[in-house]
Each structure stands twice: as structure tokens, then as C-alpha cells.
Design a protein around this nucleic acid. Structure first.
Lengths: 200, 200, 200, 200
DNA sequence: CATGAATGAGCATTCATTCAT
DNA sequence: TATGAATGAATGCTCATTCAT
């Protein structure tokens, strides 16, 4: 378990970074929001950069956990796996908009060392999409002639959610997820192979 | 024609904002990059915000001009128009990555007044995509059941280009544009209607 | 005649100095208020200090003229002359509050050279009060044992008008003048000498 | 007790404001005079305005304390009370010329919020003069037909001390105080009532 | 663990003024 | 006369960070 102070600090930093961007954020405000002294903050994190890095790490932890959980629920078919990843990503972007925006926008504010560490994790996350798409193309389930660009397109579509989706709008998140799954499958040109055995 | 000083200033600000983000950018650096004194900068622009606003405006000017030009080259059919918009947008994001990143990422750094002015322009730009897609759905050329989400998906795919595309990579921008056009048409489920009469 | 530009400039400077004080006043605002360019302003006055000095001089011109005029209307008796000076000063402070406040408060903002020139004029103005009071004491009309302090008291009473008097208040300026004259005569302990000849 | 840093800061600010006026004063100079860094200054006071406000408050504290003490020494009669207030005020203006000048001249430099708070205190201070004068008029001890203007005159006379009095001049402060008391009583036309019964 | 004091560099901005035209 | 461009210093203030306690 993380100490309560740390949690409050991360939440405060998340808000501050999300609202103003890393560069304009002030660690004084963050400490104040978290209800602690500036020095107390330095006790937990060694500086602004460390705070950002912790935030990105924590966000990435949660995201990968969410995707892994969803993947655990479905079978091995490329379409199922792609659907699960799209669903999990869309849901995460919608439910954790602040977290997601920081993940997506503030990466560039990391100093070189931390950026390197973080970029590796991010590259791995890309594989959540790459693996099923490449597998689907290989298996003949997906007929897109441009798997790389399709992958980027699907990812971009999902990621954008955290910038425009509002929970109080007309479209429920569940409905949006369904549509994103369908659109993703459309984009990769999923056409299930007809055969005698199983699954239609 | 804009005075030379202003142009240099905008270019310098573009670099600085793109590299560090608005919040972390220093107007001292900007002035230095533009080869002028801090006070000279204030002679042209009334402050950091004004510089950002000018940059966003100028970027939007160029983008809309690029789209308009491309649209001028094609016919009225929804598929042609959507293709033109996708092509123009993809090209712009690829050729003007810095400009685009600022347009896409730094909007939030505008103060409320300037944001309002700018948001109106941005909303209009969305119509470049909305109009042909809605028209295509109405005419029966596009069969997507989710035109709104498809539109967001296409836009996101195009916009993402400025974040990942490198001119020195393996894929030429022209090739990418072709693929994006195909992917966009796939996403909206474009299926040309067959009929006896000629189609323009 | 002063050129129109100069007049507008002085009026603008008067407002600016009166509202914010010399130190906080900005010559940019002054030029803007006067509807002229910064450079045009420098054409008339060589700087902020010069502007202040011109303002003090102009104010002093008007004040001495007002006192002289009032003195011209009355006889030679100390009480008449003191009354005239008190009346003229009170009126001037009430009618030209901005002018007066600058005269009274911004003297210290003058640089040493200009201060010396101005202080001489101010010392002379003090004599408007000193002369009749000393004369009245000498003649036996005024019985105050403390002519110097009484003089300072009368001057302070008159000067204060520009800080508290509001034309739209309950007391008319004419009424206030009458009262100030009476109070001044009370303070110097004016008791007209009874004698066989003339004036009661 | 105030920390030593704060005291030094107030003293430095007092000098700087008194010499140059609030607008021309530089917080850098103030910090330097107080022998501390600019940031240390901000640790104690949140800005230039706060410094001014603290100064005005502190000055007002001391003034009211001085008047209260003097009032505690005398009886209830209007003449005694007015004399005490005049004496205390004259002494304060003479002994604390810098403090007084700031109190009297820099009020206008306060921002609206702080001005409101301060103005309330200042209005109360006026009552030190108003109360005995009105009481004296009511009781028949003072015969002035213009108690309001007389009050303003007395206050102005006392306040002016901080602008002209020099401790190294010919007149001792104690002598000046005696004269001011006499002049004030003269101005309100104090004539003690003769009666058979004793008066407390 | 936690704090308040302190630092020095840096921030965006405004200043009064000068100068070439 | 009159102007817009340009300057360099100074403004009030905030920054992330350190340190003694």
C-alpha cells in the first residue's frame, strides 16, 4: 500500500498537470491541493520531474492492468483480442480522462533519463494493438493491406476519447465502446472465415 | 507581407513552444532565437499569450488554405471530398509537424478570451470532415452506422501523423497519404453505387 | 498661448499623477490619455520629471494669480488681507483639487535641481499668509501669542480642503470659504480695535 | 513579539516608502536595506502592497495606543480630552514623522480591498477629535459655530507637523505641543463655564 | 518524519528614454 | 515636427529546490 500522503499527492499532481500542463504547473499548488507542506512533498518525491514520472508510471500501471484484465476475459482469436484491447483502451480513456491526458501529452516533459525508461513501457503498450492485428492479418481474419497504419488509426481513435468524451453527454461510454470495437474491426477489414467448425 | 521581424519571431516561438510546451517556454529564449531584444519582441506582440494566439491563428490559416486548395481540385462527390480532406490534413500534419503539434496541443494554454475566438475556427475546421461524411451517408455512398465516431476516428488518425511521422523514415509522405485515404474510406464503409447512368 | 498639444498633455499628466502618484504614473498612459504618440510627448517635454515640473509651475502660477486677484479686491488691513488669502486658497483647493494635490504631495518627487527652483516659489507663497498675520500681530489686530504656529494651522486647514472636499456634498464651497475665514480670524485672535475713527 | 526579520523589513520599507513614495519604492531596495534576500522578504510579506498595509496598520496601532494612553491620563471634560488628543497627535507626528507621512500620504496607494479595511480604522481615529469637540459644543464649553470645520482644522494643523517639524530646530516638541493645545482650544472657542458648584 | 526559513535564478512584463527616418 | 522601432535596465513576483532544526 502507498501511504495516504503519497496518494493525495499524486491525485493533486494529476489535477494540476492536467489543468495547466507540466510546464505551468506549480509544485506549491500541488502541495497545497494535497493539504501538505512543500517540504513534506519533497519527502515523498524528489522533485517535480519525479512527480511526473510517478504519475506516468502509475497511469501506465493502471492502463496495462485494465487491458490485461479485459484480455483475460476473451479467447485467443485476433478479433476477440483486438476487440478487448479497443474496449479496454476506450473505457480507460473515458473513465480516466485526466490520467490519460497526462500519459498522452506530458511524456515530452520528462527529462531524458526518465523518458527512456517510460518510452519502453509505452512501446510495449503499443503491442497490445500490434499483436492481434498482425496475427489477424497472418491468419487471414483481417484483410487490411496496411496493418501498421490501421493500427495507428485505431490507437489514435481510442486515445482521442480522453480529449472529447464527456460522461454527461448523450452517448454512454458502453455504447461508445461498442462502436469503437465495430469501427476498429471495420478498419482492419475483419471478415470472419467461414468454415465447418465452431465460431461464426 | 508580414515584417521580417514578426516572421522570425513566429518561427522562433513555434520552435520553442513545440520543443518545451507553452508553459515551459521562455520568451527570453524566443527573442534570442529570433535574434532580437526582449523589448523588440514586445513591440510586435503584446505578450506570451499573444504570441501563442498568433501562432495558432497562422497555423489555422495555413491549414484551412491547404484543405481549401485540395478541395478545389476534386469533384463534389462525398468520397472525393473526404479523400481530399484526408489527404490535405495528412500532408499538413506531416509537412508541418511543429505547427500541427502546437495547434493540437497548446490550445488549452490560451486564456479564456483568446480560446473562445480560436475554438470557433477549430469547430469550423471539423466541418471539413463532417460535411462529406454526412453527405456520403445521406447519399448512400458511405454505409457506416456510426458517422460521428467514424469522423472522430478519421480526424484522430490524420492528426496523429504530426506526432509520429518522420520524413526520414521508410514511408514516404505521399504513400502514407494514399493509405490514409484508403483507410478513411474503409472506415466510413465507402461502397460506390453501381448504376446505369454516368457518374461525374 | 500654449499649443493645444501641450495643454492636453498637462491635463493628462495631471490626471495620471493625481490618480496614481508620480512614481506609479506611466508616461505611456499620459501620452495615450492626451491622444498623442510617446515621441510627440517627448517633443514637448524632455521627460517625466519635466512634465511634473511644468505641472507644478503651472499650478503655482494659477494659485498665485488667484490669490493676487483676491488681494486686489480688498483693502490693506491685516484682517482683510488674511481673509482674502484664506478665501482664495480655500477656493483654489476646492475648485482645483487635482492641481492642488499634486502641488502639495508630489513636490518630493522632483529631482534636486527642479526642487530647488520650485521650493523658492513655494516659500514665497507662504508669505501670503505670513505677511498679514505678522502685520496684524504688529498692529494689535491679532492677539495670538503664536503667530507662526497659527499661520501653519491656517495653511494646513486650507490645504486639507483638496483632500476631503467634494463639490457634490452638503456644504457649498462658498459657505466653506466663509467658515474658513471666520475660523482663521478666530485662530489668530482677531479683535478689531475700537476707536473713534472709521471701521468697526 | 514580531520576528526580527519582520521588524527590520518594516523599518526598511518605512524608510523607502517615506523617501521615494510607494510608487517609486523598489522592493529590491527594501530587502537590501533590511539585509535580506528578495525571496526572504516574500517569506514574510506576500508583496509590496502587503508591506504597505502592514506599515499602515502598525502605524495606526501605535498612534491609537499613543492617543489612548494620553486620554487615560486626563479627566472627562471636553477641553481636557481635546487637549490630550491634540497633544498626543502632535507628539506622534513630531516623533514619528516617517510613520506619519506614510499614514497620511500613502493611503491612496492601497489596493481597493486593503484600502477598505484601513479606511475603517482611519474613520475611527477621526472620532478622537470629533467626540470631545461635539461634547464640548453640547456642554457649552466650546462656542465655535462650526464644529466640523474646526475639527478638520485642528486635525490638519496636527497632521502637518510631520511634514515641517525638525527635531533639531529652534522649537522643542514639548513647546510646540503646548502651543497646539492652546491654538486648538482657541479654534473651538473654549471658554470655561463659571458656576457655583464644583466641576469634576 | 516534518517543518518553516531561506536562496538565487528565473519569470513575464513595463519602464523611461533614444534614435533613425 | 512627428513617428514607430528599438533598447537595456528595472519592475514585482514566482520558481524549484535546499537546509537547519
Amino acid at each position: 500500500m502507498r501511504p495516504a500522503g503519497q496518494t493525495a499527492l499524486l491525485e493533486a499532481a494529476r489535477q494540476e498537470f492536467a489543468e495547466r500542463g507540466f510546464g505551468s504547473a506549480s509544485i506549491r499548488n500541488i502541495a497545497a491541493r494535497a493539504g501538505m507542506s512543500l517540504s513534506a512533498m519533497y519527502h515523498y518525491y524528489s522533485g517535480k520531474q519525479e512527480l511526473l514520472h510517478a504519475l506516468l508510471d502509475e497511469g501506465m500501471d493502471r492502463y496495462t492492468a485494465a487491458v490485461a484484465e479485459e484480455l483475460g476475459r476473451v479467447g485467443d482469436s485476433p478479433s476477440d483480442r483486438l476487440s478487448a484491447v479497443v474496449a479496454a483502451t476506450t473505457r480507460f480513456r473515458g473513465e480516466h480522462a485526466m490520467r490519460s491526458n497526462i500519459l498522452l501529452l506530458e511524456e515530452r516533459s520528462l527529462d531524458p533519463d526518465r523518458l527512456e525508461r517510460y518510452s519502453r513501457r509505452q512501446a510495449e503498450a503499443t503491442n497490445y494493438f500490434r499483436d492481434p492485428i498482425d496475427a489477424g492479418v497472418a491468419s487471414g481474419d483481417f484483410h487490411t493491406p496496411f496493418p501498421d497504419e490501421a493500427r495507428r488509426g485505431v490507437i489514435a481513435m481510442c486515445n482521442a476519447v480522453s480529449q472529447w468524451y464527456r460522461a454527461d453527454g448523450q452517448l454512454s461510454l458502453d455504447a461508445l465502446i461498442d462502436r469503437h470495437v465495430e469501427l476498429a474491426l471495420t478498419l482492419v477489414e475483419y471478415r470472419p472465415q467461414r468454415n465447418w467448425s465452431a465460431r461464426g
